[in-house]
Lab assay of single mutants.
Amino acid sequence: DTINITLPDGKTLTLTVTPEFTVKELAEEIARRLGLSPEDIKDTHNGKTLDPSLTLAEYGITPGSTITLEIK
């Protein structure tokens, strides 16, 4: 299953994830792909900052969802 990550420059990154991924694991994968530190990444969905300890499923993030990435 894939989700879309909207980057600060407007580009989109597509990642393969499972509903059990935590937001922290997602940030780590994004950081790895972009050459950043996971601590520099802030993920938001529907205007809410995502708690790193919760899973994508707990936020109702499903395949095809879009998450907005902010760099701290």
Rank of each mutant, 00 (worst) to 15 (best):
L69M: 06
H45L: 14
D9K: 05
G64K: 01
L69K: 00
N46E: 08
I61F: 06
P19G: 02
I67W: 03
L13Y: 07
Y59R: 05
L69W: 03
H45K: 12
T6A: 14
E39S: 14
G64H: 02
A57W: 09
L50H: 03
T66M: 05
R33Y: 12
D40E: 12
L69I: 15
L34G: 01
L34F: 06
T2V: 10
D43H: 15
Y59A: 15
T22R: 03
T44Q: 11
E25N: 09
D40N: 10
G64D: 03
D40G: 09
E28Y: 08
P38F: 15
T6Q: 14
K42G: 13
R32D: 05
N46V: 08
P52W: 13
F21V: 08
T22D: 01
K72L: 14
I3K: 02
E70W: 04
K42E: 10
N4G: 06
G47K: 06
T68W: 13
K42V: 14
G64W: 00
T18Y: 10
L7V: 04
L13E: 04
V17Q: 00
E28G: 06
N4R: 11
I41D: 01
G10E: 03
I3E: 03
D1T: 14
T44N: 09
I41Y: 07
T14P: 04
T12N: 10
Y59W: 08
K72F: 15
S53F: 08
I41R: 03
E20G: 07
L50K: 03
T49G: 07
L34C: 09
T16H: 13
K24W: 11
T66Q: 04
R33I: 13
G35N: 09
I5R: 06
T18W: 13
T44R: 12
P8M: 09
E20M: 10
A31V: 06
K11H: 13
T66F: 06
H45A: 13
T49D: 08
K48I: 13
L15K: 00
D9G: 13
T55P: 06
I71P: 06
T66N: 10
E29G: 04
L54T: 08
K72H: 13
D9R: 05
I3D: 03
T49H: 12
I61T: 01
N4P: 01
A31L: 06
D1N: 14
I30G: 00
